Amino acid sequence: MAKQLTIFVENRAGRLKTITDNLRKSNIDIRAFTIQDRGDYGLLKLIVDKPDDAYLALANLGCACALKDILAISVPDQPGNFHRLTSALAEHNVNVIDAYGFVLQPHKTGVCCMEIDQPQLMKAQEIVAEAGFTVLQDEELYSL
């Protein structure tokens, strides 16, 4: 299963540089990211090519971070597909806690990364597959 690295980051100039410099020195490739503002602190969510190594590198730096299992879903970039995906999950009462996505060019393949309530994660994986979408395994996601 794919993993997302979530880092609790002080909201001040230079903090992201420290984190990205540490990952660069550890030869870790950031594949996707999102930042959420929470006032004095924020959440930095990363998809990286070596999540376990990234976790250790940032923990050694003193960062409060966590590795979370997520669903990384390949979604063809066509109108209505995200709706089809969310409808399948809603019909089975699966709660999406957090999500973000991106489109890979030139293949026009969307990737939707979803954090699902842990007890529903395996069920969600089955629902997504039954709806005709592909759940990317960790190495598939990290090598995009």
Results as ranks from 00 to 15, higher is better:
Leu5Phe: 05
Thr6Trp: 02
Phe8Met: 12
Val9Lys: 05
Asn11Val: 08
Ala13Leu: 15
Gly14Val: 05
Arg15Lys: 14
Arg15Ile: 08
Leu16Glu: 02
Leu16Lys: 01
Lys17Ser: 14
Lys17Arg: 11
Ile19Thr: 03
Asp21Arg: 08
Asn22Ala: 10
Arg24Cys: 06
Lys25Cys: 07
Asp29Thr: 13
Ile30Ser: 00
Ile35Leu: 15
Ile35Arg: 08
Asp37Gln: 10
Arg38Asp: 14
Leu46Ser: 01
Ile47Gly: 01
Val48Gln: 01
Val48Tyr: 00
Asp49Cys: 03
Asp53Trp: 04
Ala54Gly: 02
Ala57Trp: 00
Leu58Val: 03
Asn60Leu: 05
Gly62Asp: 10
Gly62Trp: 06
Ala64Gln: 15
Cys65Asp: 01
Leu67Asp: 08
Asp69Glu: 15
Ile70Thr: 05
Val75Trp: 05
Pro76Lys: 07
Asp77Ala: 06
Pro79Cys: 07
Pro79Asp: 11
Pro79Asn: 07
Gly80Glu: 02
Phe82Arg: 04
His83Met: 15
Thr86Phe: 14
Ser87His: 11
Ala88Gly: 05
Leu89His: 01
Val96His: 04
Ile97Gln: 09
Phe102Met: 06
Phe102Trp: 04
Gln105Asp: 08
Pro106Leu: 11
Lys108Phe: 14
Cys112Val: 15
Cys112Arg: 09
Glu115Asp: 11
Glu115Ala: 10
Glu115Ile: 05
Ile116Pro: 00
Asp117Asn: 15
Gln118Glu: 14
Gln120Ile: 05
Ala124Glu: 00
Gln125Thr: 09
Ile127Gln: 01
Ile127Pro: 01
Glu130Arg: 13
Glu130Gly: 05
Glu130Ser: 13
Ala131His: 02
Ala131Leu: 03
Gly132Met: 10
Phe133Val: 04
Phe133Trp: 03
Leu136Lys: 02
Gln137Pro: 14
Glu139Val: 11
Glu139Met: 12
Glu140Asn: 08
Glu140Ile: 08
Leu141Met: 06
Tyr142Ser: 11
